[in-house]
């Protein structure tokens, strides 16, 4: 593989073509384009049910210029595991030329990854298939109308974690899936955001470079589900990064490396601002709740700094 060069990205053919039906300003679409442009080897894709799948592969249209399969919601990881196994079987039998290197990529939303597809992902990672799994984390089940997932931030209003007289949105904190995947001791796990596109693309490049399972968790803005201005999506994502709610880091062979450290860490309330799903959190009566979220965000961030051997 040649090394990662910006020039190559600019000249590379788009393999995720225009004409898909993602909402305007959708962070998932931006992320997928960035991922697809970050490497040049031939690739086979498995896509879990969700926004990306529905919007890029509804008969008779497709945005994919590469072999692509959708099977169901929970099984992108196990489907790609099967494909990768078939590839190895064919290599072994000489049915494919050994120089013919093919990459295997799975896409899933946070629902298809943190929740219903978690077991399949964990299994495929443990078995060591040579694949890259990209979680397009828009913090909810957006394709189906914006329900909560285990990636949904605390306090967020979703259609299954409502704001009412006694409840103020999602009651729980979020699952730290990136760390969980790193705990599988796979060669590469990383967290990224499309607002830091170069960082994201370098991570994707590295993920395809390593032998064995690689996992990238990408925070993708969802104007529709976040009830937030489509034109400012990347700004919102960057606020999540700058508040350290969504730190950018990678774990390679057990070594944690923070790839972007905000010069000035902003309060989480800054990240919650301007998004309809968090509106109620800004009300005075929810001050305590907000404070408790801040405490948890700080705790996790400090732990990450410690794990990365950095100063607090």
């Amino acid at each position: 593989m040649v090394s990662f060069k910006l020039k190559d990205i600019a000249t590379r053919e788009e393999r995720f073509a225009q004409g898909h039906k993602m909402c305007p300003g959708c962070g998932v679409a931006i992320t997928v384009r960035q991922i697809m442009a970050s490497f040049e080897e031939p690739v086979v894709i498995a896509n879990a049910t969700g926004c990306l799948e529905i919007c890029s592969g509804t008969f008779p249209h497709s945005s994919w210029k590469v072999p692509w399969i959708h099977s169901a919601f929970p099984n992108a990881a196990s489907t790609i595991a099967g494909l990768e196994s078939m590839y190895r079987a064919k290599l072994k039998r000489g049915e494919i030329h050994k120089e013919r290197k093919i990459k295997f990529l799975a896409f899933g939303g946070d629902g298809g990854t943190y929740d219903i597809g978690f077991q399949a992902l964990s299994g495929a990672a443990e078995r060591g298939h040579n694949f890259v799994y990209v979680c397009l984390d828009n913090e909810g089940y957006m394709n189906t109308g914006g329900q909560r997932s285990s990636a949904t931030p605390p306090g967020a209003r979703t259609t299954t974690s409502e704001v009412g007289k006694v409840l103020q949105g999602k009651q729980q904190f979020r699952k730290d899936l990136t760390r969980i995947m790193a705990a599988h001791n796979i060669p590469y796990a990383a967290q990224a955001a499309p607002s830091k596109w170069l960082d994201l693309m370098k991570k994707a490049y590295r993920a395809f470079e390593v032998e064995g399972p690689a996992f990238i968790n990408v925070l993708c803005n969802c104007p529709t589900g976040w009830h937030a201005d489509p034109a400012r999506g990347l700004e919102f994502v960057q606020r999540a990064v700058d508040s350290c709610f969504w730190p950018l880091y990678e774990v390679e062979s057990g070594v944690v490396r923070i790839t972007y450290k905000p010069r000035k860490k902003i309060p989480v309330v800054e990240w919650f601002k301007d998004q309809g799903r968090f509106k109620h959190l800004l009300r005075p009566e929810n001050e305590e709740l907000l404070e408790s979220i801040q405490v948890e965000v700080d705790r996790i961030w400090n732990q990450l700094l410690k794990d990365a051997g950095e100063e607090m």
Binding site: P74, S78, G82, E84, S85, M86, K90
Partner: peptide, 22 residues
């Protein structure tokens, strides 16, 4: 390639991927 999966859901899913592989 003998893939001993972590569940039958994954076994059949891997079969789908593999069979589509050709």
């Amino acid at each position: 390639e003998f893939v001993v999966t972590e569940s039958e859901h994954s076994a059949m899913s891997a079969c789908v991927g593999a069979a589509a592989g050709g």
